[in-house]
């Protein structure tokens, strides 16, 4: 009975902020989130970045808000986006995110965003490490066609792109392996490409070491990080909304842990 009561309490606490809009405090961006934001701000307008969608529906709530805000941020800065996936579960999520954000951006700004010219999605390729090694030699050996079957070398966005070395920045929305560590190991260190990532809360602490060494220029960790990043970009979406609910949920768990220890005595 106690367990069920706790489940119900957590659910109520998480639902409340969705029906009654309130904030439990101002969100302050952490240095790693600022690093992520600054890395995108630093890219010259008109450049092309590579974005890898490496997550699954299980990690979608943690990574999707950052992915949406990042695509929005890149479009606002007139940066072209080449997307791909190392996870077979990612294509359906990537297509949904890219499609809805580009449409929303067109609607709000009135700017025409064209597939193949402003962004493209190359799809999934199996092979983890060997895919990245292949991309380092030539994009076209791995992706002769994009996700929709169009010839990659005929897409205007790919005109000046031959291999990974031609991207000034690499962004990974990664929930595990293959993910940020794989990119650091196989590509960004080797080709000296700036690298940033958005990841889940479970692996975020283990990736902090790459921030210290400079192998990662910035990182957005889970929904808390997404809320911070949305504030920096100046949008109010899922990340900002989620921070309040998650903060309340965590507060409840802290109270329950303390109560559990006191009551046991």
């Amino acid at each position: 009975m106690t367990r069920r009561f706790i489940f119900l309490l957590v659910a109520i606490v998480m639902i409340l902020p969705m029906y009654f809009q309130f904030s439990i405090g101002k969100v302050h961006a952490s240095p790693s989130t600022k690093g992520y934001y600054n890395a995108i701000e630093k890219i010259p307008e008109g450049s092309t970045v590579l974005v890898s969608f490496d997550f699954d529906p299980g990690s979608k709530p943690e990574i999707e808000p950052t992915a949406r805000a990042t695509i929005w941020h890149l479009l606002r800065r007139n940066v072209k986006i080449v997307c791909m996936s190392l996870w077979e579960t990612a294509p359906v999520l990537a297509v949904e995110i890219l499609g809805s954000v580009t449409k929303q951006f067109e609607k709000q700004t009135g700017k025409k965003i064209e597939y193949g010219k402003d962004w493209c999605y190359l799809g999934f390729r199996p092979g983890k490490y060997s895919v990245i090694v292949g991309l380092g030699e030539s994009i076209y050996t791995q992706y002769r066609t994009d996700f929709y079957g169009k010839k990659t070398d005929e897409l205007p966005i790919m005109k000046d792109i031959k291999s990974l070395k031609d991207f000034p920045l690499l962004i990974d929305f990664g929930a595990g392996n293959p993910g940020p560590e794989t990119w650091i190991q196989m590509a960004t260190d080797k080709f000296k490409i700036d690298f940033i990532c958005a990841t889940t809360a479970v692996v975020e602490p283990t990736y902090q070491q790459y921030i210290s060494t400079g192998q990662l220029k910035g990182m957005v960790g889970a929904m808390r990080g997404a809320g911070e990043y949305e504030q920096l970009v100046g949008i109010n979406d899922k990340g900002t909304a989620g921070v309040n609910a998650i903060s309340l949920g965590q507060l409840l768990i802290v109270v329950l842990i303390i109560l559990g220890n006191i009551l046991k005595k």
């Binding site: 998480m14 299980g58 709530p61 943690e62 889940t200 809360a201 479970v202 949920g249 768990i253």
Partner: peptide
């Protein structure tokens, strides 16, 4: 814990 709450938030949302 934060990660699991994010997943729960996703479903509740």
């Amino acid at each position: 814990v934060m990660g699991r709450l994010s997943l729960l938030y996703g479903r509740i949302s």
